[in-house]
């Protein structure tokens, strides 16, 4: 009815302006996901096969929300504000920054392709970006500004902090090495030989050791966790944790090792290196995290997460999540930091 004779030209212009405005507004609107309230303790799951995030209410153990994204992210990192979530992946040229409380993306921090791991520094002031393709460790502020870049040997895959010695320890996926960076000089001060396709390390301060787990290279499947001295980098011992121990964590004076090849979770006493308990868990589990009370394991092939009692090492509960849970994070309730 706008196209009345006489006012034809004006009406067409009006229509085109409206249309442009609609398109412009649509372009500006970013997708909003279901917000995650700050006072709810949550367990976050990265579902690799479907590029989604599952949020589980940690108290009720009920699924809270699921965010389906169209970005090839593989892991996430929660910032100390317990609200800002960074999504990153080897194939991404930026870090996607989301606010859990609003369910909105707030920024894209440009990075070079190849980010394999992001860790929060012990003082909670910086982010450590491990770039596997570039063989660098970048130090980034919590605002997304890169302040330093450390060149390391090829294929760095993950990073842990040795607080006592003020060092960062980098686990390399290829090349069978571990490199040690001095935090002050920001230089690699030592490289330690280890097995191929190592993926994670754990600093055990009580024994002054570095525990390293991984896949093993080529046809060889890694059957043990290798323990190195933090003093001199010497291989101290191997603890049999067949097969392919890829995740390590310490909780209540015990070390927990998750082996994805045999779907086994081992509980090890760190001094005697004795396997205290073990349990067959999940189907091809890749990720493990500790919460306030429990350990949570992500079962990749069965698309579920499993709550485990760390003392008895028994399964408490299984919760269905999205396809291919690959990475976990835990956010305690507000005020319980």
């Amino acid at each position: 009815m706008l196209l009345i004779e006489g006012g034809k030209a004006v009406s067409i212009r009006f229509l085109s302006i409206v249309l442009t405005l609609i398109l412009f507004l649509q372009g500006c609107t970013t997708q909003t996901y279901e917000p995650i309230e700050r006072d709810v303790p949550i367990l976050g799951v990265v579902n690799l096969k479907e590029h989604s995030l599952s949020f589980i209410n940690h108290i009720t153990k009920q699924p809270l929300a699921k965010w389906s994204m169209d970005e090839p992210f593989t892991k996430v990192q929660l910032l100390p504000d317990h609200d800002t979530l960074l999504l990153y992946g080897q194939e991404m040229e930026h870090i996607s920054v989301y606010k859990l409380s609003s369910g909105k993306k707030i920024a894209d921090w440009p990075v070079t392709k190849g980010i394999a791991h992001i860790a929060l520094s012990h003082d909670n002031n910086h982010l450590l970006l491990v770039n596997e393709k570039n063989a660098t460790i970048s130090i980034m502020t919590l605002k997304g500004k890169i302040v330093d870049e450390i060149h390391v040997p090829p294929s760095p895959f993950s990073i842990v902090e040795d607080v006592n010695h003020k060092r960062w320890i980098v686990i390399h996926f290829k090349g069978g090495i571990i490199s040690v960076i001095d935090q002050k000089t920001k230089k690699v001060i030592q490289t330690i030989n280890t097995f191929e396709s190592a993926v994670s390390g754990l600093v055990v301060t009580k024994t002054n050791e570095l525990w390293v787990g991984g896949h093993g290279g080529g046809e060889t499947m890694q059957q043990d966790v290798c323990i190195y001295s933090l003093n001199n980098g010497q291989l101290l011992e191997k603890v049999r944790t067949e097969t392919m121990p890829i995740q390590l964590l310490q909780m209540n004076d015990f070390i927990y090792v998750l082996s994805h090849g045999t779907n086994m979770l081992y509980k090890i006493e760190p001094v005697s290196k004795k396997r205290v308990r073990s349990i067959e868990i999940g189907a091809n589990p890749f990720a493990m995290i500790k919460t306030d009370q429990e350990i949570v394991v992500a079962s990749y092939d069965s698309s579920e997460i499993i709550y485990v009692d760390p003392t008895a090492l028994t399964m408490k509960q299984k919760i269905k999540v999205g396809k291919g849970p690959f990475y976990l994070f835990f956010r305690p309730a507000e005020g319980k930091r």
Binding site: L48, T74, F173, K174, E196, S197, V199, H215, G217, G218, M244, H260, G261, N284, F326
Partner: peptide, 8 residues
Amino acid sequence: ACLPFEID
């Protein structure tokens, strides 16, 4: 079983 890790 090691996928999504790029095992050689």
